[in-house]
Structures are given as structure tokens and as C-alpha cells.
Amino acid sequence: MTALEFHGVRVRLGRGRRAVDVVHGVDLTVPAGTVTGLVGTSGCGKSTLARAAVGLVPLAAGRIAPAGGVQLVFQDPYSSLDPRMTIGAAVAEAVPRRVRDRAGEVRRLLDLVGLEPEHAGRLPRHLSGGQRQRVAIARALAARPGVVIADEITSSLDVSVQGMVLNLIRELQRELGLTMLFISHNLAVVRYVSDRVAVMDAGRIVESGPVDDVLSAPRNPYTRALLDSVPKLG
């Protein structure tokens, strides 16, 4: 298993004079086979960090290891699947070339995420949001990554569906021993799936540590503000 490491990562977006630093020197390690939750408000740079880890945005400075074998599951299963490609084709596309029995592999992956083999022939629009997110997860796992980054994967799902996807993610992570960076703005969700948590604000990691420590005794004022605004029942 591989750990996911960020060393002095700086990301600059935009061109020329308009360019701005979105991520300012992030150092973060996700230990092998564990889940680190990454929280922060939108625009804090957490999604950019995820995109940098899979090579979708270039680094201005620093280093990310491993350089390959990292997969990203996107927030919106309505836009992360090609609307004109069947589920089977979308998953098959992600299966490495060396695999011989591609149809069998697709079936195995669909089964892994709790979908029926019949789903392979359908188009994304015939699936519910939760099912689509399962497909997106199957697709990410098809590439047999050592590291998976989940970027707000439940925030566009219904609450009861969110529960299923969270259970699935936890189960798969344990079964396959995945190293995972789990990004969410929802602290309760992060707390539920993560071993460690890192809090990001304005492009910097302001606090990190084991989940229970950080959430029960936050040291950073920003973490405290974030915890205070979580809506609570009662």
C-alpha cells in the first residue's frame, strides 16, 4: 500500500498577471491504508489540491507522491459520467489494458459497488444519483489505484442515499486497504469515515490530527468556527 504525500505543494491558477495562488505550500501525509478527511469552506483550495494530486492542474512548486495510480471520484455524478456512454462502457474504459476478461471485470466491479450486471447496458440518465455515484466509484476502482481521492462525493445525493454511499466507501476502503483522501464540507460525514482530519483555510492546512482530537478539542479558531456552524438537531 502507498501513502499519499504532499510536500510544499503550491498551485497557481490563471495566467500572467491574473494568476493567483490557490494552494500555498501544503504539507500533508495520508498514511497508507487509512482515511484522512479534508474539510474547509468552498474556495479554500481543497478541490484544487485534489485535482493537483491526479495531475489535472500543474504544480507551481512542491511534490506529490505517488506520481501515478491515484484516482479521483467527483462530486457530481450527473456531470462526471459521459451522458452518451453506457455504464458498462464507462467502467470498461477504466479497466487496465492487461486485463483479459474485460466483461468479467466490469461485472465484478459493478457487483463490488452493489449494482446488477444488467446496469452495464444502461445510460447514466436511467440511473438514480446514488447509482451513478456507485458507477463513478466502480470506475475509479477499475484502474486498481493505490490511492483514491473522494471530492464531495455525497454532497449532491439525497440523505438516505448518502448513507448507503458512505457505508459502501467505508466497506471498500477496509476490504481493499485503500489509502483515501476524503474531501467534504460536511464535518459529520468526515468524522464518520475518517481516521484523521485536516482543516484547510485559504489555501493552507491550519490544523490536522486524529479525528477525535481535532473535533473534540480544536486548537485553531477557524476549526472552531467551522464546528460551531454545523447545524444540529435539537
Partner: peptide
């Protein structure tokens, strides 16, 4: 996103 997803793959 789906193009980005394909690129990651």
C-alpha cells in the same frame, strides 16, 4: 467533470 475523469483514467 466527465472529461476530467477520463483524463485521470
Amino acid at each position: 467533470d466527465f472529461v476530467a475523469a477520463a483524463r485521470v483514467l
